[in-house]
């Protein structure tokens, strides 16, 4: 019995500590005052360039799986129309929606002011709206619950602090931010396991999510050489290098194959 205890108690403690120690280090959250942002290197509007483009899709569009919400009446009542997975959404013009496009490299040590406006992630009809969104590091994210049912909001980052909070109906918005760049952070609701969203966090404002036309626009870029990356939930990432001169506007196309 004594030898069993000698093994069992330290093993329990060790396992607990291993588990507790597996998370990324704690960081500033929305509940604490943010540190003063470093002075931003201004971008001269007179020379600002633009990169636009589309994300096209080749091949047979995968059939979209219908989400079964039958087990939760509050969700079926909130979503009268059938709801389909948004993992791959091919637009009518054979382009892809919900692709996160951003400047991955080329901005050097420039810093940019954090937008005063908050990004919004709404839970409506037991569905995250939007499915994919972008944020700057430190920018506020307001998570709303427009549903008459409970949700839990659970981002699963690898570079930022993971958190999981409940949000009952008509509760106040959750105001959060992410301190470190990370592309992408999955967000899930464990109450309704079909609910998934993805957040791209970058240290600059040059990011976009493709729309119903599969297009994107990165405006106000300083002239230079850039690496642009596109991220798609199912098909992964693609990169392109591009050079833009002063006041220049260039277009690029990413192509994913089904």
């Amino acid at each position: 019995m004594r030898s069993t205890c000698r093994f069992f108690v330290p093993a329990l403690l060790a396992l607990s500590l291993m588990g507790c120690g597996s998370k990324p280090p704690a960081e500033e959250t929305s509940s604490t005052a943010p540190a003063a942002a470093p002075a931003a290197a201004p971008v001269d509007p007179a020379t600002a360039a633009e990169i636009t483009g589309t994300v096209s899709f080749e091949g047979q569009a995968p059939s979209r799986v219908r989400i079964r919400m039958d087990a939760v009446p509050a969700c079926t009542e909130a979503s009268k129309e059938p709801v389909f997975s948004e993992e791959v959404v091919v637009n009518d013009n054979k382009t892809l929606r919900d692709v996160f496009v951003y400047v991955k490299d080329g901005l050097g040590n420039r810093t940019f002011p954090v937008p005063a406006t908050s990004a919004v992630l709404d839970q409506k009809g037991c569905w995250y709206r939007p499915h994919v969104l972008g944020l700057m590091t430190g920018q506020k994210l307001n998570v709303k619950n427009s549903d008459p049912t409970n949700h839990n909001v659970h981002p699963i980052p690898t570079q930022n602090r993971e958190w999981n909070e409940s949000q009952p109906p008509q509760a106040a918005d959750l105001a959060k931010d992410f301190a470190r760049p990370e592309v992408m952070i999955p967000v899930k609701c464990n109450v309704h396991p079909w609910m998934k969203a993805y957040i791209g966090v970058v240290p600059h404002p040059f990011f976009a999510v493709t729309d119903e036309q599969g297009s994107f626009s990165l405006q106000g870029l300083p002239p230079g050489d850039y690496t642009i990356e596109a991220w798609q939930e199912k098909y992964g990432t693609q990169e392109q290098k591009i050079t833009v001169g002063p006041k220049e506007s260039k277009a690029i196309t990413f192509t994913y194959k089904g």
Partner: peptide
């Protein structure tokens, strides 16, 4: 059901002894 974190608090559930029993909860 991947419902392990559907109730984020412990020992109470959504701050009560009996939350609405829906979905992962």
């Amino acid at each position: 059901h991947d419902a392990g974190l559907s109730v984020p608090d412990w020992p109470l559930s959504y701050g009560s002894l009996m939350p609405p029993m829906e979905g992962g909860i």
